[in-house]
């Protein structure tokens, strides 16, 4: 087993993220997955947009593209189509991926291009100072919703299932090995794989909403996770937290897995094609 730190550009560390921000945990889990899959690091391209989560790509020793706000799936589409042997992974946030970049995300899903999108959902715009995002829960305080958010929020996984993503999963940033397992699973999936990671923002969300710091927020994530999910393995499992601790229902686990033709430009690759 390789030390995952060997995948970092260590001269760029420490990273810019705030103390207690779980994005670093997610990055580590991802690197574990890369290591598990023994991916050729020369052939791994990571594409990001703008935001805290998108900054992650600067720290990893792969081919990395830190693009524009919300457009990472589009950049990734060009990369993958032009060079299919690349493993292309998009790292995006909830604002980046679902607001400004929502259109790109759903169309990449619809095409079923063979890339993996990691959406780090911290329920707020962190980089810009804690404004409400499409994922901010109703009632939650943000710098642009001082009296509580009055807009309903997106369920990213349901959105992506609707958009036709052939692999959709949700994991918690507090579950490192499950994250790794799902990420490895998602990257191995042929076609568009979407993995939403419930991450935290202690600096803004935690502070504005009295959730606490990083440690508290990791626990809080479990309380956002209330739903029931389908099987990850053949054994199958379901998740549940007592109703008293579940303000919002969010299923975790692999929510969809489907074999369907993969988009590769003018032609498509059938699921059974090698």
């Amino acid at each position: 087993m390789t030390d995952v730190k060997s995948y970092l550009r260590d001269w760029t560390m420490p990273h810019v993220l705030c103390p207690g921000c779980a994005h670093g945990i997610v990055l580590r889990a991802f690197l574990e997955a890369v290591d598990q899959l023994q991916l050729d690091r020369d052939k791994l391209a990571m594409v990001a947009g703008i935001g805290c989560s998108s900054r992650l790509v600067g720290y990893v020793d792969f081919c990395t593209l830190h693009g524009t706000h919300g457009r990472a799936p589009a950049f990734a589409t060009g990369l993958k189509l032009a060079r299919p042997e690349l493993n292309v992974v998009v790292v995006t946030g909830d604002g980046d991926g679902l607001a400004i970049g929502g259109n790109h995300l759903i169309h990449a899903a619809r095409r079923n291009i063979d890339i993996t999108v990691l959406l780090l959902n911290n329920a707020i715009y962190g980089m810009t100072g804690g404004q409400a995002a499409p994922t901010t829960p109703e009632g939650a305080v943000a710098s642009t919703t001082p009296a509580g958010n009055t807009e309903p929020s997106f369920d990213a996984c349901k959105l992506l299932i609707g958009a036709g993503a052939s692999y959709v999963a949700r994991v918690l940033a507090a579950t490192p090995i499950e994250m790794t397992k799902v990420m490895a699973d998602g990257m191995s999936h042929r076609g568009f794989s979407f993995i939403e990671v419930l991450s935290d923002c202690p600096e803004y969300y935690g502070r504005y909403n009295n959730v606490g710091g990083g440690a508290e927020m990791l626990t809080w994530l479990a309380r956002r996770d209330a739903g029931v999910a389908g099987p990850l393995s053949s054994k199958g499992f379901v998740k549940h937290v007592p109703s008293s601790a579940t303000p919002a229902g969010m299923m975790t686990g692999v929510l969809k897995r489907e074999a369907r033709p993969v988009f590769a430009g003018v032609r498509r690759i059938e699921p059974d094609e090698s």
Partner: peptide
């Protein structure tokens, strides 16, 4: 180690 967001523990 797994839950350190800053890769600071081995």
């Amino acid at each position: 180690e797994l839950l350190c967001p800053d890769f600071a523990i081995e």
